[in-house]
Design a protein around this nucleic acid. Structure first.
Lengths: 198, 198
DNA sequence: CCTATATATTGAACCCCGTTCAAGTATGAG
DNA sequence: CTCATACTTGAACGGGGTTCAATATATAGG
Protein backbone atom coordinates (compact mmCIF):
# COMPACT_ATOMS: atom_id res chain seq x y z
CA UNK A 1 0.00 0.00 0.00
CA UNK A 2 2.46 2.58 -1.20
CA UNK A 3 1.26 6.17 -1.00
CA UNK A 4 -0.96 6.37 2.05
CA UNK A 5 0.94 9.46 3.08
CA UNK A 6 1.04 10.95 -0.37
CA UNK A 7 -2.71 10.45 -0.69
CA UNK A 8 -3.47 12.17 2.60
CA UNK A 9 -1.21 15.05 1.72
CA UNK A 10 -2.81 15.48 -1.67
CA UNK A 11 -6.29 15.58 -0.16
CA UNK A 12 -5.21 18.04 2.49
CA UNK A 13 -3.54 20.19 -0.11
CA UNK A 14 -6.71 20.44 -2.19
CA UNK A 15 -8.71 21.05 0.93
CA UNK A 16 -6.54 23.89 2.11
CA UNK A 17 -6.65 25.55 -1.28
CA UNK A 18 -10.43 25.34 -1.45
CA UNK A 19 -10.80 26.68 2.07
CA UNK A 20 -8.31 29.51 1.56
CA UNK A 21 -9.99 30.35 -1.73
CA UNK A 22 -13.35 30.71 -0.04
CA UNK A 23 -11.98 32.67 2.88
CA UNK A 24 -10.17 35.10 0.61
CA UNK A 25 -13.28 35.52 -1.53
CA UNK A 26 -15.37 36.25 1.56
CA UNK A 27 -13.05 38.26 3.76
CA UNK A 28 -10.08 39.23 1.69
CA UNK A 29 -6.43 38.33 1.70
CA UNK A 30 -5.76 40.45 4.77
CA UNK A 31 -8.10 38.38 6.93
CA UNK A 32 -6.55 35.02 6.10
CA UNK A 33 -5.26 33.28 9.25
CA UNK A 34 -3.22 30.10 9.48
CA UNK A 35 -5.09 29.00 12.61
CA UNK A 36 -8.48 29.47 10.98
CA UNK A 37 -7.39 27.40 8.02
CA UNK A 38 -6.11 24.60 10.25
CA UNK A 39 -9.31 24.57 12.28
CA UNK A 40 -11.57 24.49 9.25
CA UNK A 41 -9.46 21.89 7.49
CA UNK A 42 -9.33 19.80 10.66
CA UNK A 43 -5.58 19.58 10.54
CA UNK A 44 -2.76 20.65 12.77
CA UNK A 45 -1.42 24.14 12.49
CA UNK A 46 1.98 22.82 11.51
CA UNK A 47 0.48 20.61 8.80
CA UNK A 48 0.02 23.65 6.60
CA UNK A 49 3.76 24.15 6.60
CA UNK A 50 4.47 20.57 5.61
CA UNK A 51 2.62 21.26 2.36
CA UNK A 52 3.27 24.92 1.65
CA UNK A 53 6.41 26.90 2.36
CA UNK A 54 4.33 29.59 4.03
CA UNK A 55 0.95 31.26 3.70
CA UNK A 56 2.16 33.20 0.69
CA UNK A 57 2.80 29.94 -1.07
CA UNK A 58 -0.75 28.81 -0.34
CA UNK A 59 -2.17 32.08 -1.56
CA UNK A 60 -0.15 31.63 -4.71
CA UNK A 61 -1.99 28.36 -5.32
CA UNK A 62 -5.31 30.12 -4.75
CA UNK A 63 -4.28 32.88 -7.12
CA UNK A 64 -3.51 30.32 -9.79
CA UNK A 65 -7.12 29.13 -9.51
CA UNK A 66 -8.44 32.66 -9.63
CA UNK A 67 -6.36 33.48 -12.65
CA UNK A 68 -7.63 30.39 -14.45
CA UNK A 69 -11.21 31.38 -13.74
CA UNK A 70 -10.52 34.87 -14.97
CA UNK A 71 -8.98 33.53 -18.15
CA UNK A 72 -11.93 31.20 -18.68
CA UNK A 73 -14.41 34.04 -18.27
CA UNK A 74 -12.60 36.23 -20.74
CA UNK A 75 -12.31 33.37 -23.21
CA UNK A 76 -16.02 32.58 -22.79
CA UNK A 77 -16.96 36.18 -23.47
CA UNK A 78 -15.09 35.93 -26.76
CA UNK A 79 -17.09 32.86 -27.76
CA UNK A 80 -20.35 34.73 -28.22
CA UNK A 81 -18.85 38.08 -29.17
CA UNK A 82 -19.30 39.70 -32.56
CA UNK A 83 -16.67 39.21 -35.23
CA UNK A 84 -15.75 42.88 -35.22
CA UNK A 85 -12.32 43.25 -33.66
CA UNK A 86 -13.14 46.44 -31.80
CA UNK A 87 -16.28 44.88 -30.35
CA UNK A 88 -14.25 41.89 -29.28
CA UNK A 89 -11.85 44.08 -27.35
CA UNK A 90 -14.70 45.88 -25.61
CA UNK A 91 -16.44 42.60 -24.82
CA UNK A 92 -13.31 41.14 -23.26
CA UNK A 93 -12.56 44.26 -21.26
CA UNK A 94 -16.07 44.30 -19.88
CA UNK A 95 -15.81 40.59 -19.07
CA UNK A 96 -12.63 41.42 -17.18
CA UNK A 97 -14.54 44.13 -15.37
CA UNK A 98 -17.42 41.80 -14.57
CA UNK A 99 -15.03 39.24 -13.15
CA UNK A 100 -13.18 41.79 -11.05
CA UNK A 101 -16.44 43.21 -9.73
CA UNK A 102 -18.03 39.92 -8.72
CA UNK A 103 -14.83 38.36 -7.43
CA UNK A 104 -13.40 41.53 -6.05
CA UNK A 105 -11.47 40.24 -3.07
CA UNK A 106 -10.08 37.25 -4.95
CA UNK A 107 -9.13 39.51 -7.82
CA UNK A 108 -7.39 41.93 -5.47
CA UNK A 109 -5.43 39.06 -3.97
CA UNK A 110 -3.87 38.52 -7.40
CA UNK A 111 -2.12 41.86 -7.12
CA UNK A 112 -1.99 42.53 -3.39
CA UNK A 113 0.04 39.46 -2.56
CA UNK A 114 3.48 40.89 -2.00
CA UNK A 115 6.27 39.04 -3.63
CA UNK A 116 9.38 38.57 -1.53
CA UNK A 117 11.52 41.38 -2.89
CA UNK A 118 13.86 40.50 -5.68
CA UNK A 119 11.74 37.48 -6.54
CA UNK A 120 10.05 37.51 -9.91
CA UNK A 121 6.48 36.45 -10.53
CA UNK A 122 5.98 32.67 -10.85
CA UNK A 123 5.83 30.98 -14.21
CA UNK A 124 2.14 30.21 -14.35
CA UNK A 125 1.43 33.86 -13.60
CA UNK A 126 3.41 35.04 -16.59
CA UNK A 127 1.81 32.34 -18.72
CA UNK A 128 -1.76 33.26 -17.79
CA UNK A 129 -0.88 36.89 -18.33
CA UNK A 130 0.57 35.96 -21.70
CA UNK A 131 -2.66 34.20 -22.61
CA UNK A 132 -4.68 37.31 -21.80
CA UNK A 133 -2.27 39.30 -23.92
CA UNK A 134 -2.81 36.95 -26.85
CA UNK A 135 -6.57 37.49 -26.61
CA UNK A 136 -5.89 41.20 -26.93
CA UNK A 137 -3.15 41.20 -29.52
CA UNK A 138 -5.07 39.01 -31.95
CA UNK A 139 -7.83 41.51 -32.74
CA UNK A 140 -5.27 44.31 -32.54
CA UNK A 141 -3.20 42.69 -35.25
CA UNK A 142 -6.18 42.69 -37.60
CA UNK A 143 -7.01 46.29 -36.68
CA UNK A 144 -3.46 47.49 -37.26
CA UNK A 145 -2.03 45.30 -40.01
CA UNK A 146 0.76 47.79 -40.70
CA UNK A 147 2.30 47.68 -37.25
CA UNK A 148 5.06 45.23 -36.47
CA UNK A 149 5.07 42.72 -33.65
CA UNK A 150 6.87 45.02 -31.22
CA UNK A 151 4.39 47.79 -31.77
CA UNK A 152 1.45 45.43 -31.35
CA UNK A 153 3.05 44.08 -28.19
CA UNK A 154 3.45 47.53 -26.74
CA UNK A 155 -0.08 48.48 -27.65
CA UNK A 156 -1.40 45.24 -26.16
CA UNK A 157 0.30 45.89 -22.86
CA UNK A 158 -0.77 49.51 -22.89
CA UNK A 159 -4.41 48.58 -23.50
CA UNK A 160 -4.45 45.89 -20.87
CA UNK A 161 -2.87 48.24 -18.35
CA UNK A 162 -5.33 51.00 -19.18
CA UNK A 163 -8.37 48.80 -18.77
CA UNK A 164 -6.88 47.38 -15.60
CA UNK A 165 -6.33 50.88 -14.23
CA UNK A 166 -9.88 51.96 -15.01
CA UNK A 167 -11.29 48.92 -13.24
CA UNK A 168 -8.89 49.14 -10.31
CA UNK A 169 -9.59 52.77 -9.50
CA UNK A 170 -13.26 52.44 -10.38
CA UNK A 171 -13.87 49.56 -8.01
CA UNK A 172 -11.55 50.91 -5.32
CA UNK A 173 -13.47 54.06 -4.69
CA UNK A 174 -16.85 52.47 -5.22
CA UNK A 175 -17.94 54.72 -2.41
CA UNK A 176 -16.79 57.79 -4.29
CA UNK A 177 -19.61 57.36 -6.73
CA UNK A 178 -18.27 55.48 -9.73
CA UNK A 179 -20.95 53.01 -10.76
CA UNK A 180 -20.41 49.87 -12.75
CA UNK A 181 -22.10 51.46 -15.71
CA UNK A 182 -19.68 54.36 -15.62
CA UNK A 183 -16.77 51.95 -15.53
CA UNK A 184 -18.12 50.14 -18.57
CA UNK A 185 -18.60 53.50 -20.25
CA UNK A 186 -15.01 54.49 -19.57
CA UNK A 187 -13.79 51.18 -20.94
CA UNK A 188 -15.84 51.63 -24.09
CA UNK A 189 -14.81 55.26 -24.56
CA UNK A 190 -11.14 54.47 -24.19
CA UNK A 191 -11.21 51.46 -26.47
CA UNK A 192 -13.29 53.16 -29.11
CA UNK A 193 -10.95 56.13 -29.15
CA UNK A 194 -7.97 53.84 -29.21
CA UNK A 195 -8.95 51.48 -31.96
CA UNK A 196 -12.50 52.30 -32.96
CA UNK A 197 -11.80 54.61 -35.86
CA UNK A 198 -8.78 52.58 -36.89
CA UNK B 1 2.93 79.81 30.04
CA UNK B 2 0.00 78.13 28.42
CA UNK B 3 0.88 75.67 25.72
CA UNK B 4 4.02 73.92 26.85
CA UNK B 5 2.32 70.61 26.24
CA UNK B 6 0.75 71.64 22.98
CA UNK B 7 4.13 72.82 21.72
CA UNK B 8 5.85 69.54 22.58
CA UNK B 9 3.10 67.56 20.94
CA UNK B 10 3.26 69.63 17.80
CA UNK B 11 7.00 69.15 17.50
CA UNK B 12 6.69 65.41 18.09
CA UNK B 13 3.94 65.18 15.54
CA UNK B 14 6.03 66.82 12.85
CA UNK B 15 8.97 64.68 13.84
CA UNK B 16 7.04 61.45 13.58
CA UNK B 17 5.68 62.38 10.19
CA UNK B 18 9.13 63.23 8.85
CA UNK B 19 10.61 60.02 10.22
CA UNK B 20 7.78 57.84 8.95
CA UNK B 21 7.99 59.55 5.59
CA UNK B 22 11.68 58.73 5.29
CA UNK B 23 11.27 55.16 6.50
CA UNK B 24 8.45 54.50 4.04
CA UNK B 25 10.47 56.02 1.21
CA UNK B 26 13.44 53.83 2.08
CA UNK B 27 11.86 50.55 3.10
CA UNK B 28 8.22 50.68 2.14
CA UNK B 29 4.99 50.79 4.04
CA UNK B 30 5.23 47.15 4.99
CA UNK B 31 8.44 47.66 6.93
CA UNK B 32 7.15 50.50 9.09
CA UNK B 33 7.35 49.62 12.80
CA UNK B 34 5.96 51.54 15.72
CA UNK B 35 8.95 50.65 17.88
CA UNK B 36 11.43 51.86 15.27
CA UNK B 37 9.60 55.14 14.99
CA UNK B 38 9.60 55.64 18.76
CA UNK B 39 13.29 54.85 19.01
CA UNK B 40 14.25 57.19 16.20
CA UNK B 41 12.00 59.97 17.46
CA UNK B 42 13.32 59.48 20.98
CA UNK B 43 9.84 59.16 22.39
CA UNK B 44 7.92 56.48 24.23
CA UNK B 45 6.15 53.82 22.25
CA UNK B 46 2.83 54.92 23.64
CA UNK B 47 3.49 58.55 22.73
CA UNK B 48 2.70 57.73 19.11
CA UNK B 49 -0.80 56.77 20.13
CA UNK B 50 -1.37 60.00 22.03
CA UNK B 51 -0.97 61.84 18.73
CA UNK B 52 -2.29 59.43 16.13
CA UNK B 53 -5.15 57.00 16.45
CA UNK B 54 -2.96 54.24 15.10
CA UNK B 55 -0.17 53.73 12.59
CA UNK B 56 -2.65 54.01 9.74
CA UNK B 57 -3.48 57.48 10.89
CA UNK B 58 0.20 58.43 10.83
CA UNK B 59 0.66 56.94 7.38
CA UNK B 60 -2.31 58.99 6.25
CA UNK B 61 -0.42 62.12 7.29
CA UNK B 62 2.63 60.93 5.37
CA UNK B 63 0.46 60.21 2.35
CA UNK B 64 -0.90 63.74 2.46
CA UNK B 65 2.68 65.00 2.13
CA UNK B 66 3.42 62.60 -0.70
CA UNK B 67 0.30 63.63 -2.53
CA UNK B 68 1.21 67.29 -2.22
CA UNK B 69 4.66 66.63 -3.64
CA UNK B 70 3.12 64.67 -6.49
CA UNK B 71 0.72 67.50 -7.24
CA UNK B 72 3.57 70.01 -7.14
CA UNK B 73 5.64 67.97 -9.58
CA UNK B 74 2.78 67.65 -12.02
CA UNK B 75 2.01 71.34 -11.75
CA UNK B 76 5.67 72.19 -12.27
CA UNK B 77 5.82 70.06 -15.39
CA UNK B 78 2.95 72.10 -16.79
CA UNK B 79 4.84 75.33 -16.21
CA UNK B 80 7.43 74.66 -18.88
CA UNK B 81 5.26 72.55 -21.14
CA UNK B 82 4.24 73.58 -24.65
CA UNK B 83 0.93 75.27 -25.21
CA UNK B 84 -0.39 72.37 -27.23
CA UNK B 85 -3.06 70.59 -25.19
CA UNK B 86 -2.06 67.11 -26.28
CA UNK B 87 1.58 67.81 -25.42
CA UNK B 88 0.47 69.09 -22.04
CA UNK B 89 -1.32 65.85 -21.29
CA UNK B 90 1.68 63.79 -22.27
CA UNK B 91 4.02 66.00 -20.26
CA UNK B 92 1.88 65.66 -17.15
CA UNK B 93 1.50 61.92 -17.54
CA UNK B 94 5.23 61.49 -17.88
CA UNK B 95 5.77 63.74 -14.86
CA UNK B 96 3.42 61.44 -12.96
CA UNK B 97 5.47 58.51 -14.17
CA UNK B 98 8.73 60.18 -13.16
CA UNK B 99 7.36 60.86 -9.68
CA UNK B 100 6.10 57.31 -9.25
CA UNK B 101 9.40 55.87 -10.44
CA UNK B 102 11.65 57.96 -8.23
CA UNK B 103 9.39 57.85 -5.19
CA UNK B 104 8.16 54.36 -5.78
CA UNK B 105 7.64 53.15 -2.22
CA UNK B 106 6.05 56.41 -1.08
CA UNK B 107 3.83 56.41 -4.13
CA UNK B 108 2.78 52.81 -3.50
CA UNK B 109 1.88 53.73 0.08
CA UNK B 110 -0.73 56.11 -1.32
CA UNK B 111 -2.67 53.16 -2.66
CA UNK B 112 -1.52 50.24 -0.53
CA UNK B 113 -2.70 51.72 2.74
CA UNK B 114 -5.86 49.81 3.42
CA UNK B 115 -8.77 51.87 4.53
CA UNK B 116 -10.83 50.42 7.35
CA UNK B 117 -13.67 48.88 5.39
CA UNK B 118 -16.72 50.99 4.89
CA UNK B 119 -14.68 54.11 5.50
CA UNK B 120 -14.36 56.49 2.58
CA UNK B 121 -11.15 58.21 1.57
CA UNK B 122 -10.31 61.32 3.61
CA UNK B 123 -11.19 64.77 2.36
CA UNK B 124 -7.72 65.97 1.45
CA UNK B 125 -7.28 62.84 -0.66
CA UNK B 126 -10.33 63.60 -2.73
CA UNK B 127 -9.27 67.23 -3.00
CA UNK B 128 -5.75 66.46 -4.23
CA UNK B 129 -7.26 63.95 -6.63
CA UNK B 130 -9.66 66.62 -7.80
CA UNK B 131 -6.78 68.98 -8.43
CA UNK B 132 -5.03 66.39 -10.60
CA UNK B 133 -8.29 65.93 -12.46
CA UNK B 134 -8.53 69.66 -13.14
CA UNK B 135 -5.06 69.63 -14.66
CA UNK B 136 -6.29 66.93 -17.02
CA UNK B 137 -9.76 68.21 -17.80
CA UNK B 138 -8.55 71.70 -18.73
CA UNK B 139 -6.63 70.69 -21.85
CA UNK B 140 -9.31 68.09 -22.61
CA UNK B 141 -11.96 70.78 -22.66
CA UNK B 142 -10.06 72.69 -25.32
CA UNK B 143 -9.46 69.51 -27.29
CA UNK B 144 -13.12 68.48 -27.20
CA UNK B 145 -15.13 71.70 -27.16
CA UNK B 146 -18.28 69.87 -28.21
CA UNK B 147 -18.44 67.53 -25.24
CA UNK B 148 -20.36 68.49 -22.15
CA UNK B 149 -19.00 68.59 -18.62
CA UNK B 150 -20.11 65.04 -17.81
CA UNK B 151 -18.41 63.63 -20.85
CA UNK B 152 -15.22 65.56 -20.11
CA UNK B 153 -15.36 64.34 -16.54
CA UNK B 154 -15.68 60.74 -17.59
CA UNK B 155 -12.87 61.10 -20.10
CA UNK B 156 -10.70 62.78 -17.48
CA UNK B 157 -11.16 59.93 -15.05
CA UNK B 158 -10.65 57.37 -17.78
CA UNK B 159 -7.42 58.96 -18.90
CA UNK B 160 -6.06 59.32 -15.41
CA UNK B 161 -6.91 55.70 -14.64
CA UNK B 162 -5.33 54.49 -17.86
CA UNK B 163 -2.08 56.31 -17.25
CA UNK B 164 -2.11 55.13 -13.65
CA UNK B 165 -2.61 51.55 -14.78
CA UNK B 166 0.24 51.72 -17.27
CA UNK B 167 2.60 53.07 -14.63
CA UNK B 168 1.40 50.69 -11.91
CA UNK B 169 1.85 47.53 -13.95
CA UNK B 170 4.95 48.87 -15.67
CA UNK B 171 6.78 49.60 -12.43
CA UNK B 172 5.42 46.53 -10.65
CA UNK B 173 6.98 43.98 -12.93
CA UNK B 174 10.15 45.95 -13.48
CA UNK B 175 11.82 42.58 -13.44
CA UNK B 176 9.63 41.37 -16.29
CA UNK B 177 11.45 43.68 -18.63
CA UNK B 178 9.40 46.85 -18.96
CA UNK B 179 11.83 49.73 -19.05
CA UNK B 180 11.04 53.32 -18.19
CA UNK B 181 11.31 54.25 -21.82
CA UNK B 182 8.72 51.66 -22.76
CA UNK B 183 6.40 53.01 -20.09
CA UNK B 184 6.79 56.52 -21.48
CA UNK B 185 6.18 55.12 -24.95
CA UNK B 186 2.98 53.44 -23.83
CA UNK B 187 1.80 56.64 -22.20
CA UNK B 188 2.51 58.60 -25.36
CA UNK B 189 0.89 56.02 -27.63
CA UNK B 190 -2.25 55.89 -25.55
CA UNK B 191 -2.60 59.62 -25.19
CA UNK B 192 -1.86 60.32 -28.83
CA UNK B 193 -4.42 57.77 -29.92
CA UNK B 194 -6.90 59.13 -27.42
CA UNK B 195 -6.65 62.81 -28.11
CA UNK B 196 -3.86 63.33 -30.60
CA UNK B 197 -5.90 63.35 -33.77
CA UNK B 198 -8.81 65.11 -32.08
C1' DC C 1 6.60 79.93 46.26
C1' DC C 2 4.07 75.77 47.51
C1' DT C 3 0.69 72.45 47.31
C1' DA C 4 -3.03 69.93 45.25
C1' DT C 5 -5.39 68.54 41.43
C1' DA C 6 -5.70 67.66 36.73
C1' DT C 7 -3.30 66.37 32.77
C1' DA C 8 0.15 64.09 30.04
C1' DT C 9 3.71 60.48 29.39
C1' DT C 10 5.64 56.13 29.85
C1' DG C 11 6.84 51.38 28.71
C1' DA C 12 5.78 46.78 30.48
C1' DA C 13 2.28 43.77 29.36
C1' DC C 14 -1.52 41.96 26.43
C1' DC C 15 -3.06 39.73 22.53
C1' DC C 16 -2.68 38.17 17.93
C1' DC C 17 -0.16 35.87 14.40
C1' DG C 18 3.22 33.37 11.31
C1' DT C 19 6.42 29.97 11.74
C1' DT C 20 9.36 26.30 13.93
C1' DC C 21 10.85 22.00 15.92
C1' DA C 22 11.25 18.55 19.69
C1' DA C 23 8.38 14.92 20.90
C1' DG C 24 5.12 11.60 19.62
C1' DT C 25 3.05 8.59 16.10
C1' DA C 26 2.36 6.07 11.92
C1' DT C 27 4.41 3.49 8.04
C1' DG C 28 6.28 -0.39 5.64
C1' DA C 29 10.47 -3.37 4.74
C1' DG C 30 12.49 -7.42 6.48
C1' DC D 1 6.10 -8.72 14.69
C1' DT D 2 10.07 -5.33 15.00
C1' DC D 3 12.48 -1.58 14.12
C1' DA D 4 14.21 2.30 11.64
C1' DT D 5 12.55 5.81 9.03
C1' DA D 6 9.39 9.29 7.86
C1' DC D 7 5.46 11.98 9.00
C1' DT D 8 2.52 14.75 12.08
C1' DT D 9 1.52 17.47 15.92
C1' DG D 10 0.72 21.65 18.64
C1' DA D 11 3.08 24.08 22.32
C1' DA D 12 6.38 27.52 22.18
C1' DC D 13 9.03 31.38 19.99
C1' DG D 14 9.65 35.89 18.20
C1' DG D 15 7.80 39.90 16.57
C1' DG D 16 4.52 43.57 16.24
C1' DG D 17 0.34 46.84 17.17
C1' DT D 18 -2.02 48.66 20.84
C1' DT D 19 -3.43 49.53 25.77
C1' DC D 20 -3.47 51.31 30.40
C1' DA D 21 -1.99 51.39 35.30
C1' DA D 22 1.68 53.74 37.21
C1' DT D 23 4.47 57.70 37.09
C1' DA D 24 5.76 62.26 36.07
C1' DT D 25 4.64 66.81 34.67
C1' DA D 26 1.99 70.99 34.30
C1' DT D 27 -1.18 74.33 35.98
C1' DA D 28 -4.33 76.83 39.24
C1' DG D 29 -5.28 78.47 43.73
C1' DG D 30 -3.70 80.07 48.00
Amino acid sequence: MAGKVAERRKVLRENLIVIADRRIAENGLGALRARDLATEAGCALGAIYTIFDDLNDLVLAVNALTFQRLGADVAASLADAPQDATEQLITMAQAYHAFAASNYLSWRALFDLERPKGETAPDWYLQEMGQLFVYISTPLATLFPNRNADEIGLLTRAIFSSVHGIILLGLDEASAGVTKDKIDDMIAVILLQLVGQN
